[in-house]
Simulated scan of single mutants.
Amino acid sequence: MGITSCGTGIPARHISNEADFKEADIHEGIDSTLMILEYRLKAQTYRQEIQVIKQYEKLPLIKCYAGQLNQVFTNLLFNAIDSLEEAISQNKDIVPTITISTYMMENIISISIIDNGKGIDESIQSKLFDPFFTTKPVDKGTGLGLSISYQIMLEKHHGRLWCDSIPGKGSKFVIEIPTTLS
């Protein structure tokens, strides 16, 4: 078995760690991440296909660390899929859905990844971005994905990553990236 990225099970060669600061298309990054995760979105013997709804607004190209930003998308989408699978195990009537929305407000690009999974209990939401904190079983996660994603957004992109969740209803993770990063 090869090296995997952040406990996602995805071979690291598919997630670029490129240090290049370059102009990139956010939608292209999200779409390529979805293509890599397609195997997890497809119908399984125990559940139907996870629906992905894309609500993209027109965005400018932005200078960023594209490979690291794609790692953030991968971590958030992987967690959304895990949450949906757990919710389905408790309620087979759920139509598993991930909605990805993008829009621009002033000089900030906002990307929302919303799932209708199990949600996150309010008592642990403040710990989500702490290193090694996980709600997953030991063999399923390392507790590093959200922590690394938070660092990438804050330190590399001078942006924000935050979560809004309602237990039993789902979670919304929001990435905010300034377009004037230099």
Rank of each mutant, 00 (worst) to 15 (best):
T74K: 08
V52H: 11
K118A: 01
E155M: 09
I111H: 04
L84A: 03
I120V: 07
V174W: 08
Q48P: 05
D164M: 13
S101Q: 10
T33C: 12
S182H: 12
D164W: 10
T135K: 06
L59P: 02
P11T: 08
D82H: 14
T33I: 02
F133M: 05
I124T: 09
I30Q: 05
T99D: 05
H27I: 10
Y150N: 15
F129P: 00
F78P: 04
I10Q: 15
R47M: 06
W162I: 07
F73T: 02
D115A: 08
T97L: 11
M153P: 00
E176F: 01
D20C: 07
V95G: 01
I3A: 10
P178K: 10
Q55A: 07
A19F: 12
I148P: 04
A19T: 13
A24P: 01
R47S: 07
K127W: 02
E85P: 01
E23D: 11
N70D: 15
I26E: 03
E38C: 02
L37N: 10
T134H: 04
L37A: 05
T8Y: 12
W162K: 12
S101R: 12
G29F: 07
V174S: 12
I81Q: 05
Q151C: 11
Q51V: 08
L84W: 02
R47Y: 04
G159N: 04
S112F: 10
E49G: 00
Q125R: 11
I10F: 15
K92D: 14
V72A: 09
P137D: 05
Y46G: 00
K136F: 09
L76P: 03
Y46K: 13
A80C: 14
A80H: 09
F173H: 03
L61V: 05
G117A: 08
T8D: 04
